[in-house]
Write a protein that binds this DNA or RNA. Sequence first.
RNA 1: GGGGGUGUGGCGGAACUGGCAGACGCGCUAGAUUUAGGAUCUAGUUCCCAAAAGGAGUGCAGGUUCGAUUCCUGUCACCCCCA
Length: 977
Amino acid sequence: MLTWFACHRYPHPRRIPTEFAKTRRGKGNIVPKYNPAEIEPRWQRFWDENKTFKTPTEVTGEKLYALDMFPYPSGEGLHVGHPEGYTATDIVSRHARMMGKTVLHPMGFDAFGLPAEEHAIKHNASPREFTEKNINTFVRQLKDLGFSYDWDRQISTTDVDYFKWTQWIFLVLFDTWFDPDQQKGRPISELPIPAEIQEAGEDATRRYQDEFRLAFESHAPVNWCPALGTVLANEEVVDGLSDVGGHPVQRMPLRQWMLRITAYADRLESDLDQVDWPEGIKKLQCDWIGRSTGAEVDFFIGATDQFETWKNTQTEKGFPRNPQDDVLRVYTTRPDTLYGATYMVIAPEHNAIEALTTADQAPAVKKYCDDAAMKSDRDRQDDRTKKSGVFTGSYAINPINGQPVPIWVADYVLISYGTGAIMAVPAHDARDFEFAKTYDLPIIAVVQPPAKSEIDLERLMTGEICFSGVGTAVNSGPYDELPTDAFKTKIIEALDSSAVGRAAVNYKLRDWLFSRQRFWGEPFPILHELDEAGNRTGIMRPVPLESLPVDLPFVEDFQPHGRPEPPLEKADDEWLYPVIDGKKYKRETNTMPQWAGSCWYYLRFIDPHNAAAFIDPELEKQWMPVDLYIGGAEHAVLHLLYARFWHKVLFDRGHLHTPEPFKKLVNQGMILGDVEFTAFRDTNEQWVSAELTCENDERKTVLKSTGEELYVVKLDPEQAEKEKDGDNFVLKSDQQIRVDSRAYKMSKSRGNVVNPDVIIAEYGADSLRLYEMFMGPLHQSKPWSMAGVNGVRNFLDRVWRMLVEEKAEELALNSAVVDHPPTDDQVRMLHKTIKSVSKDIETLGFNTAISRMMEFVNFFTKQSERPKAVMAPFILLLSPFAPHMSEELWKLLGNESSLAYEPWPEFDESLTVDALVEVPIQIMGKIKSKVSIERGKSKQELETIALQDPKIAALLDGLTVRKIIAVPDKLVNIVAN
RNA sequence: GGGGGUGUGGCGGAACUGGCAGACGCGCUAGAUUUAGGAUCUAGUUCCCAAAAGGAGUGCAGGUUCGAUUCCUGUCACCCCCA
């Protein structure tokens, strides 16, 4: 992108005297100004040394567990987005302590992950050292913000003492099977073993058990990139090439660890009722789980003349648990469209493919499947790519009407969803329709849209269009005229009784691919038994608890070696091949994904130093669940779903007492960069109005009409103004030229990242905290504004001057601060402020809480007498928001100790109301007059007062009063004509 | 394409269950004070009309209501997530 940067004018940084103590003791008129650079580190040291925020060992009274989503300690350090949520939980925590609650407010680090490993590869350095350095930076930055964390509980997922228990939980998953009858995870030893397996011996029994474990091995296709020497996530592959570097990516099956999260799909969905989360997040999780109901149906693929025999046998024997070789089993959510199934499609990975492919089709099918192997699931499902496929040469028989239908292979069907095969109903499914049109396959409409629908019935019936909604059945034999829902029920009954199908539930949720071919992750605590020749016997042995943790071994280097084997294969033999009881084993060399550590960290915070267990059950009962969990919406699905899954398994196995981990969840909004004004110029340096521009495929700004590339000019805000009649911004110098105005996501490349360290240095941590809370509602995304930071700093300066004598040479109370009792007005102001601020903290409405305190200060700076009895409670109200300044002023008011546990001020409702109210009087809904009257007048009194008002009386002259609406203390509306 | 969210002054945003639209902050204007202002204080600041009087006004178009930023229907724009 071609960019011209115009000069930007931001408010100048404040001059802050760096040596406060000296300057104020000096001669002359130097005054004790508010100086956060001196105050803040001093109080941070005080809290640290006195362990002010140490979590009490016993919960007395009500508890509060306020948790932040712990950060990944990147090399970039803290971003201004981090302190937004952290300040919110800190305010809630500080407020709760003052309310007498016992508070747990911890912080830690999610420190495994790719960047540290990439750094290690690049510099041939230790990922651990790099990670620890970053953590130290984060801790320093977090302490600079004055958060009231209990730092004695700091944990990192990379701590050996921490991941010991991550490994232990993995072994719990490994030791658990899901009992569908009880809908519950149970010990593998309680899994019923069928008699024939038992008879086959111990090994057979173990293999049988292995099939049911929640943690199990599987050969799953992964995205392997030889050039990068790594396996990539689906998100990292675009059009068959790696997102980074553009190298080819292959799909290949590798032995992987999987977690059977699908077993918990129903509970993960239904238990969302129990939690206080934003509806949007709940829906996102529901959609991700993607529960659908429908039917599984067997299509016969044997010889046509055997169809009747097969059907009869099937009816006799019942629907087989697993599909037999002579059928193709499909899953459909619309069994009511069975009569419209005109062909079938199997995924290129389907295991029946060889049996179904005829000799003359074999080359085409083979080529097609090989090509498909190069594509990601994501690309295969992309609506923009044209559907492709190839005929196998075989036919299946539709069990409902005995019609033969051709079987095709197409990559728009995924092996991982349903049974990996579908019955295609082109008249009623958009993808099937597109495919049928491409390959000229028959289209039969079997659902008639409702009468009021806009669908052209004739075109639907002739196969020109597709309709995927519900309606009434046509062309469906005995089921004609049934509405879709009733048809579904009936046909499932029919399929069931003839045992060619059955009702089935399916999920979009896949089992969780839990292993990575990476170094910087938790090793699996699993040993693979080897035979004499050094080959795996298939028997696995969990590393016993007393041998945990399995620490990461030393490896020589982290360079990729071009083979899809994990880096841990490079460990020395002593680590790799342990011998136990004379048997040789090989350690599992995959590592766990980054999600693992974040799945349970909230539990460890409760008992972070426990060496004997992952958590003390008594403490768990005291503290769980997390009362308030704040973090970014980017974790709406994966982290929150994975953590809930682990929690439920631990709950089922009796280690926890709550079925859900996070009672209340709040997503903070994104903080965007400062608003930018952008204008465009063509190559002749002529301005181009914004509505004539667009972005092309390469994300360059071009002229819409010709595609000519344009210069993008960042404007000084002074150069733009709002259009006279309209909603657009235009150039001041040329009103015809529209310019863009918007805030962008902060990014290095855009250069609009705000560093919290810089804000703290120039304005102070209290200002940063206050500004982030004052910007707007917590959950909303909002643009940063340097001027806004300056604004809240002005407020803190005013608070300071309200209490501090600036004319003095020493730090001293303002002479206006007196011991007199407050006036009625002053008391009312205080009680109103206490009420609003208290309520706003409870509803997390921090922006309005701050504006209330601003009103308080505006009021009292005008008062020549500011009674201590009013000032002291105000400082307490301010303290959760601006703790450093509050402590300083609290001390100045003559208090010896920290205010962190001072009782939160209480208000008296009767003292919050004014004696007089101003009541507007409307005629026909328009305000015509206002009267100031005593509170609590009745409707009748209000009516009389309104009609006697001289302005109103004049306006009503000549009109007939039809009706009067009087709302006590609110308004009077007169309907007249 | 599907889902979610948001539209209120020059800007960020207030407005409880329908009841004075624009709290609070920024910015801007004028004045005071100051060696100075990027400090402080005072006053003003939704728009239209020179001002008063008055009128319009919460993306747009309708509806319900004595009364709608708030409830209903339709519609447009932008943002986020998924595909």
